[in-house]
Amino acid sequence: MSEHHRGHDDDHGHHHHDNHFNDVEARVKALETVLSEKGLIDLAAIDAIVDTYETKVGPRNGARVVARAWSNADFADWLRRDATAAIASLGFTGRQGEHMRAVFNTPDTHNLIVCTLCSCYPWAVLGLPPVWYKAPPYRSRAVIDPRGVLAEFGLELPVDKKIRVWDSTAELRYLVVPERPDGTEDFSEEALADLVTRDSMIGTGLALSRQAKP
């Protein structure tokens, strides 16, 4: 995997799957169409419901993966070698069998995930993507100017810290494992999971410090 993934073009084979609806996906879209035409649902209300359930639920899965990796060196090693299997061992699997790769932040490297062409996202561990992840400005600028994008998220990294940008595909999704916050040696796995935010697993944030624990 090269460090940067610039120069993707639209005929990139990985993405062919994204513009295909299987039967059940198409059926859900059809139901949405017919129900909104009849005025029985409005998409804003649906989005609000999805948001309520999903933004709170999804990232908790990823947080458990990260917390396990922080507290168990064998699991961290497994996650590094075969993220798909390590994550599946906690019961989180992608329905279409997409592969996962965990990228670990270190004192000298920060990782950031993006999908430049569409919005491939590690659903199984992070739930639904935030709106900005799917928006063209993030998708294009994360690759060209990752430091600038991170600054807009309020994340100012030291100039000598390298930033690696990982471009997701339909088949391969990334999960950022943020650095474990200082002073958390005595934390239980559950307490650690509370420090892991969604953004820290995308790379647009860091894990919360022990003081900031909600």
């Binding site: 059940v24 996906e25 879209k29 649906i46 999805v50 279409q96 659903w123």
Partner: peptide, 10 residues
Amino acid sequence: PVFAEPWQAA
């Protein structure tokens, strides 16, 4: 509730 994919949440 947990969802594996967006269509499930929808």
